[in-house]
Simulated assay, not measured.
Amino acid sequence: MQETRLDTARIRAARRVIDPMFLDTPLYRCEAWEPELGCRVSVKLETANPVRSFKARGTELVASRLVDGGSRAVVCASAGNLGQALAWSGRGRGLDVTVVASRTATAAKLARIRALGARLVLVDGDHELARDRAADIARRDGIRLLEDSLDIETCEGAATIGLELAAAEPTFDAVLVALGGGALATGVGHVLKELAPGVEVICVQPAGAPAMTRSWRARRVVTTDTADTIADGVAGRRPIPAVLDDLLAVADDAVLVREASIVAGMRMLLDHAGLVVEPSAALGIAAILEDRERFAGRHVVTIVCGSNVDLAAYHRWTGTPRH
């Protein structure tokens, strides 16, 4: 395997730091999908926890190391899920957490960040402008800047999912991973390439926010001027070079999917698995829907990575009635 910034020994050690409630999440086969999708699909459910996403696996590491190092303040930019996770991990350790987010971010995510006690700073722009503002705050106040996907804790925390997948029985042929900044994909990919190299690692991104996928295909950083997708959790425009290098070492493919397929995936997760998820969590199902022939007869795992969704928007997208 090509070298990445990640280290499997550190990833195994991370399991001793992360609160057990975020570990060993459910992994189960969803047979109800199989007639329509034409393949065996198992779900790795990363939403049954207090922050309803996988992000706390990484923020638990960050917060623990800050405390060990005597630091008490940290700032991050977030589309919502990282901010919630950092607020949760920081609250339990007495940290001063600041989260910078776009004013247009999902209202439910912003409300939860506030409820968890973090200071919320809103910017009139997208996630990339929030990243710039968070860096400014860190410089001004002399505090830790947590950069999702660049900071190795976010990748190695997510990589603990890979340890659980590698140990799973029965084995599987491919894993479909939502691709945004890259922490989840590089983390899971690193572990699987080392411990289960026969598993195909396929990253999935919305066609409306294609920067990381275009970068992976070009083998160099490709930025975009805009991002237009309902999958706000993966709507970045400026890939991080070091993260792209890691992704190039572990990803077998990166694909783009249409918005209609994302919505169809969300509806399938509701109808056949009883799961209300945010759009990013449906990217794996969207990829199967768009290329059934590729996955025919195979056993595929999709990581359901978040369920922090604005319910009014969810009902509008999926055409489900509000009660």
Rank of each mutant, 00 (worst) to 15 (best):
S149G: 09
S149Y: 02
L150T: 14
L150W: 15
L150R: 13
D151L: 12
D151A: 13
D151N: 15
I152E: 15
E153Y: 04
T154I: 12
T154V: 12
T154Y: 08
C155R: 15
A159P: 05
A159L: 09
T160H: 05
T160I: 00
I161G: 02
I161V: 06
I161P: 02
L163V: 12
L163H: 13
E164D: 06
L165W: 07
L165V: 11
L165K: 10
A167S: 04
A167E: 03
A167F: 01
A168S: 08
E169Y: 05
E169C: 08
T171Y: 03
T171S: 11
T171L: 10
D173A: 04
A174W: 07
V175F: 08
V175E: 10
V175Y: 04
L176K: 01
V177P: 07
V177E: 03
V177R: 04
A178L: 11
L179R: 08
L179A: 06
L179H: 10
G180A: 05
G180M: 06
G180W: 07
G180V: 09
G181W: 05
G181T: 02
G182S: 00
A185W: 07
A185R: 09
T186Y: 07
T186L: 13
T186C: 12
V188F: 03
V188K: 04
G189L: 13
G189A: 14
H190L: 01
V191H: 05
V191F: 03
L192T: 15
K193R: 15
K193S: 15
K193D: 15
E194V: 14
E194M: 11
L195G: 00
L195K: 02
L195C: 00
A196L: 09
